[in-house]
Amino acid sequence: MRAFIFPGQGSQSVGMGKALAEASAAARAVFQEVDDALGQHLFRLMTEGPAEELELTENAQPAIMANAIATLRVLEQEGGIRLADKADYVAGHSLGEYSALCAAGAIDLVTTARLLKHRGLAMQAAVPVGIGAMAVLLGADLAKARAIAEAAADGEVCTVANDNDPSQVVLSGHRGAIERAVALAKDMGAKRAMLLQVSAPFHCPLMQPAAEAMQAALAEAQVAAPLVPLYANVTAAPVADPDTIRALLVEQVTGMVRWRESVAAMTEAGVDRFVEFGGKVLTPMAKRIAPDAVGISVVTMDDIEALAKVI
């Protein structure tokens, strides 16, 4: 069985999508449709930069989605492959959940782009710059990360944002608490702890204003049942009902991304192949969670052509 998976924020880079667009009309059509939907030259920003503008949450989120969907569309249109025939499930990490839903036909491309632009703006506006922070703990499992977060909180928000794999967990919350967590981490059993270069503390209770903004936006958005079930970030379980999908996307803004559990649950359900579109971040995580699984990252035309031969 096979799962198509989609990366989250951090996988953006200047130059993304350029070679794909040069090689494929299908990719160019995706980038143009997203540009038109947003009323901005996002694709030019993706290919030319500047990097600091691309890294803004409001730009990075739709850019990563556009790149992932363009990669999939090339496979589908030029390889003659249908997602419903080749994938048993879809999943995405944080914003990648929107890419997954778009890929599976639950949300159209224009709506997905606009939702992610709105999501990025709402997340950035939820917490003033400098108030929040995030840190990655390496060599720490979920239990250890929760203990570190609890010890560091001291009355402030300090929670697990992403349970990525057995050796990588991300904390989010008030800057002071996150800095205390970094200082405490090694003594409490983590191998290493580092502050992340992010503009807001994602996936923690401080994002509640953004969750409310997304609840309003999603209430107006057309959401259909996906062609194949989505493994949701906040439940690590499959979902196909549109109203439930909406509710989980809202919950996801403040909730923990249960990626380790999601991959483990998909493996338990029979998935033995994970195909990542538009990035090379989730595949190594999947391999650390499910060492016997096959992981394939699809980024370039060569990757697409190689996948089309074996899928």
Rank of each mutant, 00 (worst) to 15 (best):
A3P: 02
F6A: 00
P7Q: 06
G10I: 07
V14W: 10
G15Q: 13
M16F: 07
G17Q: 11
A19W: 05
A23F: 11
A29H: 06
F31K: 04
F31I: 04
Q40M: 15
L42M: 07
E48Y: 13
G49F: 01
E53L: 12
E55R: 15
L56T: 01
I64T: 02
A68C: 09
I69S: 05
T71N: 05
L75Y: 01
G79K: 08
H93G: 04
G96T: 08
D108H: 12
V110G: 02
R119L: 03
L121Y: 03
L121A: 11
Q124F: 04
A140K: 00
A145E: 02
A151G: 04
V157F: 15
S167E: 15
S167Q: 15
S172Q: 11
G173K: 01
R175P: 07
G176W: 03
L184A: 09
D187Y: 00
K191P: 01
A200D: 01
A211G: 00
E212W: 04
A219H: 03
V234C: 10
P238F: 14
V239P: 00
A240M: 06
D241H: 12
P242I: 03
Q252E: 10
T254H: 09
G255Q: 00
E261L: 14
A265Q: 12
E268L: 14
P284F: 08
K287A: 14
D292S: 09
M301I: 13
D303Q: 15
D303Y: 15
A306P: 07
A306N: 12
V310G: 14
